[in-house]
């Protein structure tokens, strides 16, 4: 239901265990487009949501390769071509001495790529999210655990989904306006 007036149906739970159990039942009921919101990282939740996104490690590996090459290139260029300088009779391209800087550049590029690709692919910064439309959601950063089945789920029907979520043992179930 792509043009639903709702973003989804949100249920509020009191404990992380209840949330995980709810996610499992929702998945068993055939829902796939859902997300969970918790005040702290809950172990096993992303497995239960079947959230698998391994793009960040790939970007980090590419960043590491670029870092290694640019660190090595920087030293080769400056020491051997731009301003050749004889240090104690050592070769101009003294690659042994360049390993530390190359290594540091590898780590630096990899870490920065990791941070920025994470921020960008998460869609951050995100000043507004439809979940903010329900007042109780403020407690998602304090002591409540939320599960939202989104309207883009093929099995989403406002009434059915609401009934289903009410049966999950939630404290409250609310429709989230767009």
């Amino acid at each position: 239901m792509a043009n639903s007036p709702y973003f989804g149906i949100a249920a509020q739970f009191e404990t992380p265990e209840a949330l995980i159990a709810a996610v499992r039942r929702a998945r068993e009921a055939g829902y796939s487009k859902m997300d969970a919101y918790t005040p702290f990282p809950v172990h096993g939740l992303s497995d239960e949501l079947q959230f698998r996104d391994e793009r960040v490690p790939i970007f980090m590996f590419l960043g590491a390769c670029v870092g290694a090459l640019s660190g090595f290139f920087l030293q080769t260029y400056t020491n051997a071509y731009d301003y050749p300088f004889n240090v104690g009779g050592r070769p101009l391209v003294a690659y042994a001495a360049w390993v530390p800087v190359t290594f540091e550049c590898t780590i630096l590029f990899s870490a920065l790529t990791g941070v920025f690709s994470m921020i960008i692919m998460n869609g951050l910064p995100k000043p507004f999210d439809p979940m903010f439309n329900i007042a109780s959601f403020a407690r998602a950063s304090q002591d409540r655990f939320f599960l939202c089945i989104e309207a883009k789920d093929p099995n989403f029907v406002v009434e059915d989904t609401t009934t289903f979520m009410e049966n999950l043992g939630a404290l409250s179930v609310e429709a989230v306006p767009r």
Partner: peptide
């Protein structure tokens, strides 16, 4: 391994 090598290499 490498630190030992680099220190000796630099010391010359």
């Amino acid at each position: 391994s490498f630190s030992q090598y680099l220190i000796i290499w630099s010391g010359n």
